Simulated scan of single mutants.
Amino acid sequence: MRVGVYPGTFDPVTLGHMDIIRRGAKLVDRLVIGVTTNPSKSPMFTLEERMAMVRREVDGEGSSIDVVPFDSLLMTFAERQGASVIVRGLRAVADFEYEYQMAGMNQQLNDRIETVFLMADVSLQPIASRLVKEIAMFGGDISRFVTPTVRDEVVARVERLGRKGS
């Protein structure tokens, strides 16, 4: 069985993430969505909230998708999952430079696990969780970037945190 891992913080999960999840799931028998916390980012949602959000969004996408938390090196997590593939989404040249370097480092850690890059759908390429949060913090409409349920969660969180520019 071919297992793939799609890692990320998913803070929040966007339509771009969902595009990569759907397409990545077609390439493997089992896709593990690894939800992690990046120490260089300050998340809007807790790990538990992001896990619940991703699980809800992938519900109905097929039984071959699992959502699993991790707090380790990606390659250690991938090995534990029995993965042979890391799935990564690319939006722009800047993504490629970062992802290329990461893929090279990961290959040095474990050359039995390949990294596969999927280009984001053209209509979804500008979407980034960081920008979705920023737009929401300033009262902008994020409905073109996330599902209605995720939009409601982000808007509610922004209201609790106190919207900027009000």
Rank of each mutant, 00 (worst) to 15 (best):
Y6P: 15
P7N: 10
P7I: 01
T9G: 03
T9F: 12
F10E: 01
F10S: 01
D11R: 08
D11H: 06
P12T: 05
P12K: 00
P12N: 06
V13I: 11
T14N: 05
T14S: 08
L15K: 15
L15Y: 15
G16F: 00
G16A: 03
G16P: 01
H17K: 02
M18I: 15
D19V: 04
I20T: 00
I21S: 02
R22A: 11
G24I: 09
G24N: 03
G24T: 01
A25F: 13
L27N: 13
V28I: 12
V28E: 03
D29A: 09
R30A: 06
L31W: 11
V32R: 00
V32Y: 02
I33H: 06
I33P: 07
I33R: 06
G34L: 07
G34H: 02
G34I: 06
T36K: 14
T36H: 15
T37K: 14
T37Q: 15
N38M: 14
N38Y: 09
N38S: 04
P39S: 11
P39R: 10
P39W: 11
S40G: 07
S40K: 15
S40E: 13
K41V: 00
K41D: 13
K41H: 09
S42I: 13
S42N: 13
M44P: 00
M44R: 07
F45R: 02
F45S: 15
F45C: 14
T46N: 07
T46W: 08
L47I: 10
L47F: 12
E48F: 11
E49S: 13
E49H: 15
E49I: 10
R50H: 09
M51Y: 13
M51L: 15
